[in-house]
Write a protein that binds this DNA or RNA. Sequence first.
DNA 1: GGTTTAATATTGGACATCCAATACATTTAT
DNA 2: ATAAATGTATTGGATGTCCAATATTAAACC
Lengths: 110, 110
Amino acid sequence: MSEECCPEVPSCCDMRGMLSFYILWLLSKRPMNGQEISEELRKRRGAKPTAGTIYPALKELRTKGLVEMERKGRTTIYSLSEDGSKGLEKACEYFCSAFGDIFQEYRKAT
Amino acid sequence: MSEECCPEVPSCCDMRGMLSFYILWLLSKRPMNGQEISEELRKRRGAKPTAGTIYPALKELRTKGLVEMERKGRTTIYSLSEDGSKGLEKACEYFCSAFGDIFQEYRKAT
DNA sequence: GGTTTAATATTGGACATCCAATACATTTAT
DNA sequence: ATAAATGTATTGGATGTCCAATATTAAACC
């Protein structure tokens, strides 16, 4: 379907991390199933996470009570819980505080 | 010494990752020793990485040829190599492309 | 019904990142 | 000279994130 442009993953240093955070952020936009989440991540981070990446992460978020799920036939719709929503807010604050300078610099440069 | 304010690490989701990337970015500002790098990370990410975190990361960056070091008495000064500089550029591009939306949203909200 | 397809899910192995604990070298203080 | 302080470094164990491989389930197709 969509062949939308996506960033090239750099070879120089490891860019893993923040997956659960990113999933929470995506779910704050709208409830999604696993494949939709994976596709969003592909568009944004340049590589589509496989099933072995995405479902364990979702399971952990559910265990922590941050995400709720509802099975609908073949698919499972994941959505933010109230705790997930509150947690995301704190996490966004932290993320932008921790990495803000790097973004600022990029904005100036372009 | 400096008790500068630093962000509170959220409990909701894991915020590890991007350490090597962040180190490269810091070293692009100026050469530093391990303790200075750790202190910069504390101010920005809210927790000071211990020796077991920082030195293996620096060692790996050196193995990859991205970082150079020079021993000076008690301290070791680390600096970006040419490859490190080029790699960082790509990595910054990727990082901002991958996480830009989250940051944009934060800017609007505040 | 029987096959294919799409989505979900688990397992096992690899690796980066994290800490606590330990060790060592060099400078500084006594 | 000895002790304390500072900076560097390694080890071992935990955890999150990553993929390939495999399995399961439900819908769609013939």
